[in-house]
Each structure stands twice: as C-alpha cells, then as structure tokens.
Amino acid sequence: MSVNCKLTCRKVLSVLSFMLLFQFAHAQYDFSGIEKKFDAFKDDIGKNFVCLIYKDGKIIYKKEVEGFDARAQAHIGQASRWFVVALVMSYVDQGKINLDEKVSTYLPIFATYGKKYITVRNCLTETTGIKSCNPSGKTLEERVDAYASKCDINTNPGEAFDYENIGITIAARVCEVVAKRGFEQIMNEKIFRPLAMRNSSFFSESGNVNPANGALSAAEDYINFMSLFLNKGQFKGKQILSEKAIEEMTKIQITTSMIKQAPKPVVGYNYALGTWAIEAKDTKATAIASPSMYGMFPWVDICRGYAAVIFPKSGNGESKKATLISIKQFIDGVIGDCH
C-alpha cells in the first residue's frame, strides 16, 4: 500500500470516527417531542424562530423555522440588561467598580441633587428609588444627568424593586466614566468580541443608545453569552468573567416581597442581577432567565448544566409564563435530573 493511500485511509477513518462521536453525542438526547410543543404554542412563539439548546460545550439541539437562522439578528428588548450587568461585572473584576459603592462616587451629580445614597448594586437590582420619568437627552450622559437632576425619589434606595430603565442606564453610564470611552465601544471590547458575538450590538440609527432595551442579537450569540454561567466565566478557554462574578450574578438579590411590578412571564420569581431566578435553592439561583417583550426567552439551568433560547424574529408580544414553563419542563425531562 502506498504512502498516499495510507494517509488517505487515516483521514477517512478520522472523519468517520468524528461523525460517529458527533452522532452519539446527539443521539443521547431525544428532543423529537418538542415539535409538538412548538406547534401547540405557535401563536405565542411566532412562525419565524430559532431554538438552540447548549450543553457540555456544544449545541445539542437546533431548530430554525421559516428561513430564520441562528445567526439572524433581531431586537431582544429587556434581555439586553444581562449584557450590561456582565459589562459592569467585568469592571468589578478589575477593581474599577464596587457594587456597594455610591453612584455619586463615579457620577457626582447624584450627590448634588440629593441622590447620594444610591449604589451601583441598587442600579443593577432595579432598586434606585427614582420615580419613573422621561428625561430628554440623546447621549447616556445627558439622560443620566437628567435622572439625577429632574426625577424625584419615590422610595429609599434598596427598599423596593421597580422594573424601569433607570437603574441599568445609570450603570451603563458608570461604565463609560470608569472606562473613559463610549458605551458601545466598551461593550464590544469587553463582552461582544471576546464571546464571538458578531451579530450583537447596541447600535441605533438615531444615535440614542438604550442599554436597558436596545440591543440587537442572534440566538447563536446569546448562547455564547449564556455559556459563561456553565463554564465558570470562561469561553473557549479564556476567562471573560471571574468565577466570583458569575456567583454574584446568580445570587438572589431581591425577593418577591420587594417587587412592585414585573413582566408577566416572571411574576412570582425572585431577582438576581439582571436576570430572574426561575428556580432556586436557598439564596442561590439554580436556573436564571431574562425574557423580553419581543417574545424571546433565554435561560440557563445551572443545576442541569444546560442553556437554551427561544429566539423569535418578531414575537407576538410578551411570552406567556405557562408556555415557557411547559417548554422548559419538557427539555428538563430530556436532559435529566440535576447534578
């Protein structure tokens, strides 16, 4: 047998071995019944959507419907907030931001207008106490300065949860000040590029950046982001966030007794940092989710070791809690019990 023939045979055997391993990895999970779930809830999910399930470093299920694929960009609404929290935590890791430091340390205007007791943690847990208002201003600096100077305090910071855009927007502005660069630039540098999120951005044609609700992303990108919670803050061997940061982001920070109002899909759940604790044990979330008003539903089941996202092109409004619970319970049954 010639040398070339031997090399060719080895290559063929290698490819066949890889294919067998690939098939085995996917064969151990039977998701065939999920199609019935999608069909039953099609009015809620929409007709153009992607579903991805990630476990053990790979995608174990992919469903792309009506030409909408896993790299296609769409608005993600409130699911944008998770990105902002991760950005803040990257600066916490560097020692440049302290969650329990007063916002006025970074933005002195808050002390000038009687809001010196608001902390960065209050911003990430929606407990700033600032009354909802609609300040004018195109840049983050202009809008956040208006929150400080023109919006009243409704409750003491840390006392009540109010699901508004205020806190997360202030936190984004703190990051700008600390980094001495614009929000979009630092989000790309610290989160999107390191996580190979090539189809994610906070770009706005109007130039009015919206950290709380304004991100564009793709199902594949969002899975990359959520994989951090299953891989101790690492992505492809690179440490993006510290283990300590991941632990902080999955601690229950706000209990239901403090929550004044919440999106319908997550009513009755506690809150972590930028996400909802849809399952928990003691003070630790074992499953976290960040649903959006566009029908997108991303979640990480830390206990069972998987992440999943239902990503519609344009949802039919806010997803129904019963729909999300039903689909998750089906996937949980396929994956198996907690570790």
Rank of each mutant, 00 (worst) to 15 (best):
V174H: 01
F192C: 09
T250K: 05
A245W: 01
P211I: 03
Y163R: 02
G233K: 11
E220C: 05
S149N: 10
E176R: 03
V177D: 06
S204V: 07
K150F: 03
A171C: 02
I223K: 04
E248D: 13
E220S: 14
S200R: 01
E247M: 12
F202L: 07
N165S: 15
G233S: 13
R193N: 13
A215R: 11
C175M: 09
T155R: 02
Y147I: 14
K190I: 14
N231P: 01
L241N: 07
T169V: 10
G207I: 10
K244P: 01
K238G: 09
C151R: 06
N213T: 15
S242H: 06
G237P: 10
I191T: 10
M249V: 09
D152W: 03
E142T: 12
S206N: 15
E220W: 08
R173D: 03
K150P: 00
E142G: 11
C175L: 00
Q234D: 13
N231C: 00
E248G: 03
K138S: 12
E243T: 11
L140N: 02
A160D: 08
N210I: 10
S204W: 07
P211S: 03
K190N: 11
A212M: 03
E142K: 15
N213L: 14
S206T: 15
E184P: 08
L228C: 07
P194E: 03
I166S: 05
K244T: 13
S204L: 07
A160I: 12
N224T: 03
T139G: 07
F161I: 00
F202G: 07
N208W: 14
D152A: 13
G137W: 11
I246H: 06
C151N: 11
M226V: 09
T250V: 06
S242Y: 07
Q185M: 11
M197P: 00
E142A: 15
G207N: 08
I191V: 14
E176I: 02
G158A: 10
I223F: 11
K238V: 14
S204M: 15
G214I: 02
S200C: 06
F229R: 03
A146Q: 06
S200D: 00
F202P: 04
P211T: 04
F192M: 12
F225M: 13
C151A: 13
N154V: 06
G158F: 08
E247C: 09
A219E: 06
K244M: 12
E141W: 01
K236C: 02
A219I: 07
A218I: 04
K150S: 14
I186F: 07
G237I: 03
F203C: 00
E159C: 06
V144A: 10
E243Y: 09
G214Q: 06
G167S: 10
K180H: 13
L195M: 05
K244N: 14
A215W: 09
Y163C: 09
F202E: 00
N208F: 14
T250I: 03
G214E: 07
I166R: 00
A212I: 05
A171Y: 06
Q234I: 03
G137S: 14
N154T: 00
S136Q: 14
S201G: 13
L195W: 02
A179Y: 04
F225S: 04
K190S: 12
I166V: 15
S204P: 00
G207A: 07
N156F: 05
K236Y: 08
K244F: 10
M187E: 01
E142M: 12
I168F: 04
